[in-house]
Amino acid sequence: MSSSIVLGIFWHFVGATSAACFYAPYKKVRHWSWETMWSLGGLFSWIILPWGISYWLLPDFWAYYGSFSASVLLPVFLFGAMWGVGNIGYGLTMRYLGMSLGIGIAIGITLIIGTLMTPIIQGRFGMMIGTPGGRMTLLGVLVAVVGVGIVTYAGLLKERALGIRAEEFNLRKGLALAIMCGVFSAGMSFAMDAAKPMHDAAAQIGISPLYVALPSYVVIMGGGALINLGFCILRLMTRRDLSLRADLSVASSVLLTNVLFSVLAGVMWYLQFFFYAWGHASIPVQYDYMSWMLHMSFYVLGGGIVGLLLKEWLSTGTKPTRILCLGALVIVLAANIVGMGMAS
């Protein structure tokens, strides 16, 4: 396996770990509605950071985006909005199925769809099943799904041991939302593929391969921001039990702490795709669809590792922890299988 592929896999792990950790600062926010803290964090992750970093990278910010036709920008934006719908459904999935089952089903579906649908649409499925490297990468996807399933089962055992239940458990609603979430969340993978002309244009004006994907995030995350911020603002305006004015009227010390933690969460969320771009740049072009598989499986792996470091599994007994470790090893094995497939 080449050093470039190893480095690409490593950067995907770093980005996915940031994604697994990003919600932790939100847990420190007090006396604010979810809508307010999510909007503030999202303002940084979906608008301020993508725009600021792209403005710094591009020699002429406005000329770069003005060079693309609507036929290029619109699919990128709409796929970003598609991801935004999945992002909203993610929270509702947890509500009806619980954290572990909801994450497992949603991540498993988005891993498969986001990884395999792009090469299938592009007519590359023959290459995937007709070459040794392609077959090995497909095997890696299958092993990754198995690993996600094992970690999900460990999470279910953990929740039972701790007496944690879904807020409003409803299997039918939860499964429907998990499937919807999994399908729509794959929009980020589709958006990255649709944005390739933007990546090529960034490379032509001298931007490093590590950063060529970052300017496209202005458009991708703009679509996601429209859905997420629109949803939050609508709820703040229409729900009687929610009030932005009340959220902002908390004590000054609480207000400052809430702002800082919300901003930190937003920065950590953005960093997942900052490092995703680095990892994606190191993956061979013919296997670029594997970036999504690596990101999503490492997201589950990172969540398990973070839980262990935070000692969340101490009171669950040895069986859930052993199964979690087994699932983590299977995901690591999947990454190695994919890496060997890309190198062959």
Rank of each mutant, 00 (worst) to 15 (best):
I5L: 05
I5F: 08
I9F: 04
H12D: 06
F13Q: 03
V14D: 06
C21Q: 10
Y26E: 02
W34E: 09
T36H: 03
M37F: 10
M37K: 02
M37V: 15
W38I: 07
S39F: 02
L40G: 00
G42W: 01
L43R: 09
W46K: 15
W46I: 15
P50N: 13
G52D: 04
L57K: 07
L57P: 00
P59I: 12
A63M: 13
G66A: 07
S71Y: 12
P75M: 05
V76I: 13
F79D: 01
W83Y: 15
I88D: 04
G89W: 00
Y96F: 10
Y96E: 00
Y96N: 04
L97S: 06
S100M: 11
I105H: 03
A106L: 10
G108R: 00
I109L: 08
T110W: 04
T110K: 09
I112H: 03
I113C: 03
G114F: 01
L116M: 09
Q122M: 15
G126V: 00
P132R: 05
T137Y: 01
L139V: 11
A144E: 04
V145S: 13
V151R: 02
V151Y: 02
V151E: 10
V151M: 13
Y153D: 08
A161T: 06
A166F: 15
I179Q: 11
I179F: 11
F190T: 03
A191I: 03
A191Q: 01
M192F: 05
H199L: 14
A202T: 06
I205L: 15
Y211P: 01
V212L: 08
V212S: 05
V212D: 02
Y217M: 14
V218T: 07
V219E: 05
G222Q: 07
G222Y: 10
G224A: 07
L229V: 08
I233F: 13
L234R: 12
S243D: 13
L244N: 09
R245M: 14
V250S: 01
A251C: 05
S253C: 11
L255P: 02
L256E: 02
T257E: 14
N258D: 14
L260Q: 14
L260E: 07
L260W: 14
F261W: 15
G266Q: 09
V267M: 12
Y270H: 13
Q272M: 15
F274S: 09
W278T: 07
A281T: 05
S282P: 01
I283E: 02
V285S: 12
D288V: 12
G302R: 05
G303W: 02
G307K: 09
L308K: 14
L309I: 14
E312M: 10
E312R: 04
W313M: 13
S315W: 10
G317R: 12
R322E: 09
I323V: 15
L324V: 04
L326P: 02
A328E: 04
V332T: 12
L333I: 00
A334C: 13
G339V: 00
M340N: 11
A343Y: 05
S344G: 14
